[in-house]
């Protein structure tokens, strides 16, 4: 059983929901990313999604675009991101780490070399925004052979046939994009999410994490009630942007954001 699977299974056994924060590696500076990952765990993260910065993040709104630009200004490369995970693993063997990003940096590194290095660094899952399963024939097997979870996206526009096919290609969890749009837009409609996630649950046994539009305890609880976990990204990245200069203050601000979400999610526990 993968580390992701184990964590989600334990949570389910406790009737609890996963809190999955996202930050962009290298933002605001490569030197503080590992520290921030530990902060996220202390504030209640069950899984960390670590963004690999890309020059052209087409699926992201301005908040994460700017995070990519900040990270790339410091030359944050995919290899460096893998190094950060490796350092993180020296003191945290428990929290799963999912790399989230775009395909081209992996292609440039070479898929096999990347998959090997990911395992070696202690990465648990890979989520590639611009890689639908149709194009993943050469790539996804390299992950699954190495017991890396391949996490794919489902969207409000995904048809039933595709929900089934994508779920079959996925392991760990599936990531449901809560609305049509880019990251950071505030358009979430909880009723729509609830009915779609219930529908997805009928078609796959995999846990369903929901991301896009979750920004506070209230939205976290509302979405947590109808899913297996919530992914929180832009609101954290925006907090990083506003507290770049002072790492101690930044860690406090991230904790202040995540902690109420954790509590709100745990208050749902049956």
């Amino acid at each position: 059983m993968s580390r992701i699977e184990a964590v989600l299974k334990t949570l389910k056994g406790q009737g609890r929901k996963a809190l999955i924060p996202y930050i962009t590696a290298g933002d605001p500076h490569p030197d503080v990313t590992v520290e921030l990952m530990h902060t996220l765990v202390e504030a209640g993260a069950d899984i960390i999604e670590l963004g690999v910065p890309f020059s052209d993040p087409m699926a992201d709104g301005p908040v994460i675009q700017l995070a990519c630009e900040r990270a790339l200004k410091h030359g944050t490369s995919l290899r460096q991101v893998l190094g950060m995970v490796k350092t993180f693993r020296e003191t945290d063997a428990r929290t799963p780490v999912v790399l989230m990003g775009y395909l081209n940096p992996m292609e440039a590194m070479g898929y096999e070399a990347f998959a090997d290095a990911a395992v070696d660094s202690g990465v648990d899952g890979i989520l590639t925004v611009d890689l639908p399963p149709e194009e993943a024939d050469d790539v996804a097997p390299l992950f699954t052979q190495r017991k890396l979870d391949a996490i794919f996206l489902l969207a409000p526009t995904t048809t039933d046939d595709r929900i089934r096919a994508i779920s079959e290609h996925s392991s760990g969890y599936v990531y449901y994009v809560s609305f049509k749009g880019v990251t950071g837009a505030a358009r979430i409609n909880v009723d729509e999410v609830a009915s779609k996630v219930a529908h997805i649950h009928e078609m796959t046994a995999l846990p369903v994490g929901v991301g896009f539009g979750i920004r506070d305890a209230e939205t976290a609880a509302a979405v947590g009630r109808v899913s297996d976990g919530v992914i929180v990204g832009s609101v954290l990245v925006d907090t990083i942007a506003r507290n770049q200069a002072d790492t101690a203050e930044l860690k406090r601000a991230l904790t202040d954001l995540l902690h109420p979400m954790r509590e709100a999610l745990d208050s749902l526990a049956s």
Partner: peptide, 12 residues
């Protein structure tokens, strides 16, 4: 070639 986009656009 191919179709390397996020899932939301696949159906369209």
């Amino acid at each position: 070639g191919g179709r390397f986009v996020s899932e939301t656009l696949m159906d369209s």
